[in-house]
């Protein structure tokens, strides 16, 4: 089975993000890491490839500094990686990103594309479906359990009140949530091997896309601090904490 996993490099989640020029997220001098949410997709991809004797290709779009993050996926396993990086993509929005990723994925035959349900920094949760539409294949999002059965995918898809069981033919795009698989840690051997694996860098022109096709359709007009909610009363529990809360609930007329 030929599997593609979409992986994104995001500003290191431990730091405080900053907004730079043109209201863009500051990425210079900011360390980029593999989106923790994408590690579940990587793990699922590796497991399915192991089961079927298949292969895993990582596809990512991001600044040149994203290489280390993509290589982290390679050190978990998999065969090769493609990073689309181009100054023209600096302000790319969801549509441009979907076009780029679909073009990069579509260069090779594939059976399954796996993505995270939502990225840590963008969290639109719509991008992989746009990729599926551009590729002309089936899709299902928010999978929390995935298995291969008779050449199709059977998955549990999260819903507001529980889950649905969905049967999805291949080829397909799937998005996965935490819990679909426990991501493995890269081993020292894996880290060494990752350095030898094919790692291709492509530009927008390499993908046959025009500047208009990746031009942003959204402009940030302003960024303001959100109104703060004031800090209220803080009491140390000295056996009376519960009584104080009960009083509060009674004042709010909910008991």
């Amino acid at each position: 089975m030929k599997i593609v996993v979409l992986v994104k490099a995001v500003p290191n989640p431990t730091g405080t993000p900053e907004i730079g020029e043109g209201f863009r997220l500051k990425r210079e001098g900011v360390e980029l890491a593999l989106d923790p949410g994408d590690e579940y997709g990587v793990e699922l991809g590796l497991q399915l490839a192991e089961q079927t004797g298949g292969e895993v290709t990582y596809v990512s779009m991001g600044p040149a500094g994203a290489t280390a993050a993509v290589r982290r996926a390679l050190s978990m396993g998999g065969d090769r990686a493609v990073l689309v990086t181009d100054p023209a993509l600096a302000g790319a929005d969801a549509l441009a990103t979907a076009r780029v990723l679909a073009a990069a994925v579509g260069r090779q035959p594939f059976d399954l594309v796996i993505a995270g349900a939502e990225s840590t920094d963008g969290y639109t949760g719509t991008l992989p479906m746009a990729v599926a539409e551009l590729l002309g294949v089936a899709s299902a999002s928010f999978a929390r359990r995935v298995e291969l059965r008779d050449g199709a995918i059977r998955l549990e898809r999260q819903t507001a009140d529980g889950y649905d069981v969905v049967e999805c033919p291949l080829p397909a795009v799937l998005t996965v949530t935490a819990g679909v698989a426990s991501p493995r840690y890269p081993t020292l051997k894996g880290i060494m091997q990752a350095k030898q694996k094919p790692f291709e860098q492509l530009t927008v022109a390499d993908l046959g896309l025009s500047a208009e096709e990746v031009a942003a359709t959204q402009t940030v007009e302003r960024v303001d601090a959100a109104p703060e909610r004031g800090r209220g009363e803080l009491v140390q529990d000295a056996g009376d904490g519960a009584a104080r809360i009960a009083e509060f609930l009674a004042e709010a007329k909910v008991i």
Binding site: L95, A98, T126, P128, M129, A132, E133, S139, T217
Partner: peptide, 11 residues
């Protein structure tokens, strides 16, 4: 997400 890709619209 699918509609965006079909229409080439902003989302």
């Amino acid at each position: 997400g699918r509609l965006q890709a079909r229409l080439g619209a902003t989302l």
